[in-house]
Amino acid sequence: MDTKLRFGVIGGGSWGTAIVKMLVENLDQVSWYMRNESAIDHIRSEKHNPNYLSSVEFDVSKLRLSNNMNTVVDQSDVLVFAIPSAFLEPELKKLFASLKDKIIFSAIKGIVPESGLIVGEHFHDNYNIPFENIGVITGPCHAEEVALERLSYLTIACADGKKAELLADALQSHYIRTKISDDIIGTEYAAMLKNIYAIAAGIAHGLGYGDNFQSVLMSNAIREMKRFIDKVYKMKRNINNSAYLGDLLVTGYSTFSRNRMFGNMIGKGYTVKSAMMEMNMVAEGYYATKSAHLINQNRIKKTKTPIINAVYAVLYDNKNPKKVFRKLTDKMN
């Protein structure tokens, strides 16, 4: 690994906090941007993030904390973006520091609402970042288990394999295993779609469906994911690899999954607004559902996506979840 390269993380949420924890295992210094100045002060004095993964204790001598994103961008050669997709563009509007020649990795599992694009495509199309300088970090990996140092696996995707290896080396440790991939578009779409399927799993659980149906739902979800991704970007990929199937399963089944939690609340009768307010966290799958629906309608010529359609009907058309899922069960096989 080129130890001369400087690393920065954009985002102070749970996943951003987990990524900083992983990086400081291997690096002498990591720049870290978060909006909340009081959280920065707390980390400096108490050595942990007061709002997310508060059990993680940092060696603050390794951190260069700032609530000015331009400062962190200027200090870094490799940037990891880990903020919710719905807030990415508003944050980037604050940026006047140049992204030219920066290596950018997205740890964001969603679609940018302003462009309807996955994060890598958004940086390429709107900020002129070449694809060889763009990468993706995918699971299966929950931030909460990183905090507990439970064995976890990451896939680092980039068109430039050396850059994927660079970040993989910086993240791996005794509890983090990494592998690399060249399927930057497919893995990023998979990371977006699995959140929609996790909402579906949560709705089903909230409605009282059991493990038998959940297994059928996940089996159909991975096939639906393959159809969708193959339409968006056709290449040779094994959909059963951990970056696709593994990430889908952990997000669909884990009690740490905020998207499953969100769906579970919807299944139990919460409105979308009340579920979001009670969670006080962003469920990426909510925004991804609308984006995937629009992509399917406008870009990929109506691929068969009954699960996405069902979640969209519940979240955006205000259809009754019980009735929608009763119809959905007839389409499962």
Rank of each mutant, 00 (worst) to 15 (best):
R64S: 12
M69H: 03
E91L: 15
I40E: 09
I40P: 03
F228D: 03
K226E: 15
Y270E: 02
K4A: 12
N259I: 00
F81L: 04
K100I: 04
E91S: 14
I196L: 00
I10F: 07
K236R: 14
L294C: 09
T17I: 03
K290A: 12
I104K: 13
I307F: 07
Y52L: 04
N220E: 14
M281S: 12
D59E: 13
L148Q: 14
S54Y: 02
K319E: 14
M34S: 02
I184C: 02
L193G: 05
N298S: 10
I199F: 01
E37Y: 12
S66C: 09
M192K: 07
A201Q: 05
S38A: 15
S66K: 06
I137Q: 00
Y33M: 02
D59V: 10
V136N: 12
V9L: 06
G206S: 04
N296F: 08
R35P: 06
E278V: 10
K290D: 01
F123S: 03
A170Q: 06
A143F: 04
Y127V: 01
K322D: 09
I118D: 02
E25N: 07
G110V: 10
F7K: 07
K102I: 00
K273S: 15
E57I: 15
D317G: 06
T329M: 13
V72C: 08
L328Q: 01
R326V: 10
I180K: 10
H48Y: 11
K162G: 05
D74R: 13
Y52G: 07
V119P: 12
H174G: 11
G161Q: 15
K100Q: 11
G161A: 15
V20Y: 01
A275P: 03
R6Y: 01
I40W: 06
F105R: 06
Y233K: 13
Q297P: 01
R258A: 08
S274W: 06
T187F: 02
M1N: 11
D183K: 14
V60S: 11
H42F: 15
F256G: 08
A168I: 01
N49Y: 08
I19N: 03
A159S: 14
A39N: 05
I111W: 08
K331S: 15
G12V: 05
E188Y: 07
G186H: 04
I203C: 03
K234M: 14
P84C: 00
I185G: 06
C158E: 08
V24R: 00
L99D: 05
R150T: 13
I118N: 00
E188T: 00
Q29H: 15
